[in-house]
C-alpha cells in the first residue's frame, strides 16, 4: 500500500529544506531560471529553452485561496470536498485537494503536503498527495 497514485508528480521523501514532508517533482529552466510544476520537457513556458532539469520542490507553502466544492460531475470523486491554491515556498502555485479534517481555512495560512489513501481507476488503494494546515 505504499504505492503512489501519481509518482511522476510527487514522492514520499521530502527535500533537504523540508525533510519531513513529501516533495513535489518540479522543473527548472537552465537558461532563465524559471521554476515550474509539474516537470515537463517540451520547452520552457517563459523563454522557450529546452534546457529543462528536474527540481525537487519542498512540500510547504501558504494558502492563496480555498473553496468547498458542493457539486461535482466527474466520476471517481464524490462532493463535497475542498480544494486549495497553495503558493509553494519554492515559487510555483499548485491547486489540489485539502484534507477533509482541515477545519476552517484562512488565506495566508501555512500549509504542508501529506499523503492520504485514495484509489486508482481500478479501485486499488494508492497514496495521493494532499495539503493540510501546518501542524
Amino acid at each position: 500500500m505504499d504505492e503512489l497514485l501519481k509518482p511522476a508528480l510527487y514522492r514520499a521523501e521530502g527535500t533537504t529544506a523540508v525533510p519531513q514532508r513529501p516533495a513535489l517533482l518540479g522543473g527548472e529552466c537552465g537558461a532563465c531560471g524559471y521554476v515550474f510544476f509539474p516537470l515537463q520537457r517540451y520547452g520552457c513556458e517563459k523563454c522557450g529553452s529546452l534546457d529543462l532539469k528536474p527540481r525537487d520542490l519542498s512540500g510547504a507553502g501558504s494558502l492563496l485561496a480555498s473553496a468547498r466544492v458542493h457539486l461535482h460531475a466527474g466520476k471517481g470523486r464524490v462532493a463535497p470536498f475542498t480544494v486549495g491554491a497553495i503558493r509553494l515556498d519554492d515559487g510555483p502555485i499548485v491547486r489540489t485537494l485539502i484534507v477533509e479534517e482541515a477545519g476552517p481555512l484562512a488565506v495566508g495560512q501555512r500549509m504542508a503536503t501529506t499523503l492520504e489513501t485514495a484509489t486508482d481507476a481500478e479501485g486499488a488503494p494508492r497514496l495521493d498527495l494532499r495539503f493540510a494546515p501546518e501542524a
Partner: peptide
C-alpha cells in the same frame, strides 16, 4: 502534463 487533481477543479 497532468496536475495534482485537475479533475477536481471544474
Amino acid at each position: 502534463i497532468g496536475g495534482l487533481a485537475d479533475d477536481a477543479i471544474a
